[in-house]
């Protein structure tokens, strides 16, 4: 079960977006390692670079420099084809807006990753059904996304992420489009998955949601801070603001 084995490791990751003459540095040398079985939340305000970081972890985006190892493999050395394979087999994505294909039924949405992976045809349907049952949607397999509530759609997305038995669940604001109550239900699912050994990295701006994680790191202006560093920095900032006020 949960042990000290490292699942993913980022070392000094830098990323700058360029738009013509202007360049926007987004990540200033980020280092992070996640162990197997951990539930890490990356907490930061909008514009902090947290989405870019998530895309790099899911190698949907390439860093300008730095090293990224996933399961002991250097991601930057992989071809696009190998990346697609690794993504299919090891990472399950959960998005804020669910990202279900609107014209496919729940079951077809869940079948998609199996279709792209090398899963034998006769195994696909039982696996997809099983996964939908796990998130409590056995009755909704033939429904289109628009016939489902937001919470149900996110649960289809979770089933889709889990159907390939990934090593890592990568969540981007998973409750951002849900009401508070439904969001809580979704977070309970993640908590249970983590209890069963799933490694989860979640990106959010919501402290309450981040609290479900076993470890929280903060991202501010493209720099990563541990909870302790963040608290210390906050105290210092607040003190300096108060000190400044005192001078007035």
């Amino acid at each position: 079960m949960s042990n000290d084995e490292i699942l993913l490791e980022l070392r000094d990751i830098k990323k700058t977006y360029r738009m013509g003459e202007v360049s926007f540095p987004v990540l200033h040398g980020i280092s992070l390692s996640v162990k197997k079985g951990e539930f890490v939340s990356i907490l930061g305000p909008s514009g902090s670079g947290k989405s870019t970081l998530m895309n790099i972890i899911g190698f949907l985006d390439k860093p300008d420099s730095g090293e990224y190892n996933l399961l002991g493999r250097a991601v930057s050395s992989l071809s696009e084809r190998e990346m697609a394979k690794l993504r299919n087999e090891t990472i399950g994505f959960i998005f804020q807006n669910f990202q279900l294909l609107p014209r496919l039924s729940s079951i077809d949405n869940v079948l998609l990753p199996l279709f792209y992976g090398k899963v034998p045809k006769k195994e696909r349907l039982p696996r997809a059904k099983n996964e939908l049952a796990r998130v409590g949607l056995s009755e909704k397999t033939e429904n289109l996304p628009k016939q489902l509530s937001g919470g149900q759609q996110q649960r289809v997305a979770i089933a889709r992420a889990l159907v390939t038995h990934p090593s890592l669940l990568l969540c981007d604001e998973p409750t951002g489009a849900l009401d508070r109550n439904t969001g809580t239900q979704i977070m309970e699912i993640f908590k249970e998955l983590n209890r069963d050994g799933m490694t989860i990295v979640m990106i959010t701006h919501d402290r309450r949601i981040a609290a479900y994680a076993s470890r929280t790191v903060h991202i501010i202006d493209g720099n990563l801070y541990s909870a302790e560093e963040y608290d210390a920095m906050m105290e210092k900032d607040i003190a300096s603001v108060e000190g400044g006020n005192a001078h007035d």
Binding site: L60, R81, A84, K85, R87, E89, F93, L101, P113, Y116
Partner: peptide, 16 residues
């Protein structure tokens, strides 16, 4: 475009 991106996120190879 969004659909293609999602499919890639789910592991679709460019050739697919």
């Amino acid at each position: 475009t969004a659909e293609i991106g999602l499919r890639k996120a789910l592991g679709a190879r460019p050739s697919v």
